[in-house]
């Protein structure tokens, strides 16, 4: 009888606070992401394995780089790789959910678009944070990376926040290829970007021509910038330029595809 009362007497109805945003939803989203083995492998397992392979090699691991050593340098690179992976898949999820019709389902609930974006951002950030944490934990446990405490913290923060920009890339690629297999495409393209950005092999080992070309790839600027607290020295204007240019390309591409997508519905 109580439900009869509820439907027929219609008590004062209200809209939810903060557009339907709640941490409980973020928790459900994170749990859902962690359930996806591919996501976990790409964002946590692979970066740690890469760090263990490349970052501990005694031939060069203890060599000095700026305020620390090569092992620390590689640890930052791998954390960046994992965090970028996490944010890209987070961004791709949004466009995938649109293609699946889940966003349409959400539109007949009080959830506001802003709250939805906030939920997705936070979910990406939690996942990105976990990637950084896992790689840095591997670094701590192995005792190889060496740098001052504030550099541990500042590089981790730079990686965490900077990688958020790749959510736009995920959004873009998700709109471009809205399918369940988008993770494979993301895995492959980020692998290429990582080589271009110098995450896997130091750019100094590339031929001059290849190095010039690498400076135009999307992870180049971000990679240089997140290492800056460690390497020190002068800031190169090409780094932020590279970062901004790719940000504009990804956001622009995502907006363009989003518009094309909504125009059809």
């Amino acid at each position: 009888m109580t439900s009869t009362q509820a439907t027929t007497t219609s008590p004062e109805r209200s809209t939810p606070p903060i557009g339907g945003f709640s941490l409980g939803i973020v928790r459900l989203e994170v749990r859902r992401l962690l359930r996806n083995h591919r996501t976990v492998i790409f964002t946590m397992v692979t970066p740690v394995i890469f760090f263990l392979i490349f970052g501990l090699n005694s031939a060069y691991a203890d060599r000095r780089v700026g305020h620390g050593n090569v092992s620390a340098f590689i640890m930052v690179s791998m954390a960046l790789y994992g965090a970028v992976m996490a944010n890209t898949s987070g961004g791709a999820m949004v466009s995938l959910e649109r293609a699946l019709g889940w966003s349409r389902q959400l539109r007949v609930t009080p959830l506001s678009p802003t709250a939805y974006i906030a939920i997705k951002m936070l979910t990406s950030m939690v996942l990105g944070f976990t990637s950084v944490l896992v790689v840095y934990a591997a670094g701590l446990v192995t005792h190889k990376p060496s740098m001052p405490l504030f550099v541990w913290i500042s590089t981790a923060l730079c990686v965490w926040v900077g990688s958020l920009l790749f959510a736009a890339f995920g959004l873009f690629i998700g709109y471009l290829l809205p399918s369940e297999n988008v993770m494979q495409v993301i895995g492959f393209s980020l692998m290429l970007f990582s080589f271009g950005g110098g995450l896997f092999i130091p750019l100094s080992q590339y031929s001059p021509a290849l190095r010039r070309a690498a400076a135009f790839t999307p992870l180049y600027g971000l990679n240089q910038l997140v290492h800056y607290p460690l390497t020190g020295g002068g800031l190169d204007w090409t780094w932020p330029t590279n970062l901004l240019a790719w940000l504009v390309i990804f956001v622009g591409g995502a907006v363009w595809l989003f518009r094309r997508d909504t125009a059809r519905v």
């Binding site: 109805r13 939810p16 019709g101 889940w102 349409r104 389902q105 007949v108 506001s112």
Partner: peptide, 15 residues
């Protein structure tokens, strides 16, 4: 919709 007065079972609302 935002007050929960109306809700829907959609034909192509994805899950």
């Amino acid at each position: 919709v935002s007050r929960g007065l109306v809700s829907a079972v959609m034909q192509n609302g994805g899950l």
